[in-house]
Amino acid sequence: MSVETLRDEDTHTIEYDDELNALIHTWNTFSSGETFREGANELLSVFTERDVSKLIIDTTEVKAHDEEDKQWLQEVWLPNMIDVGLAASVNVHRESVIAEMDMQETVDPLEDEPFENFMTDDMDEAREWLAEQ
């Protein structure tokens, strides 16, 4: 497995995994509002540049998302990601019922979107699932 770091910011890290042919976006700390949107849009930009279709988003350092950020993800960011080729994504959340519920609230309204999504609290499981997509 070879992983290349593409961006390394205080709030997030973006890596390319050549074995999965996927990006891995790790939130290093809680972010919201403009800071959150800047990090997410940077991922959109890198995703477009790399011409990949798979993504792991690691939110193990995030307890919950703000409601405005969830709405923005659902209405703006995710449709843009799908438009540029997102076919499969995994959300890795912290091992907590609250974190899992927060992620579920974020992705439930998107179940009719044309991409596959999986949620887990285990990075190995995330990698295995994405490798099969």
Rank of each mutant, 00 (worst) to 15 (best):
T11S: 15
R94E: 14
S45M: 06
S53P: 01
D122F: 03
E125D: 14
I14F: 02
V76S: 13
R50L: 11
E19H: 10
D83P: 08
W129R: 11
D17H: 09
N91Y: 13
D124V: 12
L6F: 00
S45E: 15
E4H: 03
V52M: 03
I98N: 06
E34K: 14
I14Q: 02
T26Q: 06
E42F: 03
N41S: 06
F47I: 02
S2C: 04
S31R: 09
M103D: 11
N91P: 00
M101G: 03
E67G: 01
N80P: 03
Q74T: 01
F30G: 13
L130R: 02
D69V: 07
L23N: 02
E9C: 00
A99D: 11
R127C: 01
E128A: 12
S2R: 09
V97N: 13
T26W: 00
M81I: 11
Q71W: 12
H12P: 01
L130Q: 02
N117I: 10
G85T: 08
A126S: 09
E38V: 14
L43E: 12
F47K: 01
E95Q: 12
V92S: 07
D108V: 10
A126E: 08
D121N: 13
V52G: 01
D51S: 11
L23W: 01
L20I: 07
D83E: 15
T13S: 10
D18H: 14
A126I: 04
N91V: 11
D102M: 08
E111H: 07
E34I: 06
F118K: 04
S31Q: 14
T26S: 10
T120P: 04
P114Q: 04
W27F: 06
W72P: 08
S31V: 15
F30L: 13
D17G: 01
S96A: 07
T48I: 03
A131K: 06
F36G: 02
D51R: 12
E19I: 04
E100G: 03
Q133C: 12
W72L: 10
V46S: 05
V92Y: 01
Q133H: 07
T120Y: 05
S45N: 14
F118Q: 08
E100F: 03
D10I: 11
K63P: 00
E128K: 07
L78I: 15
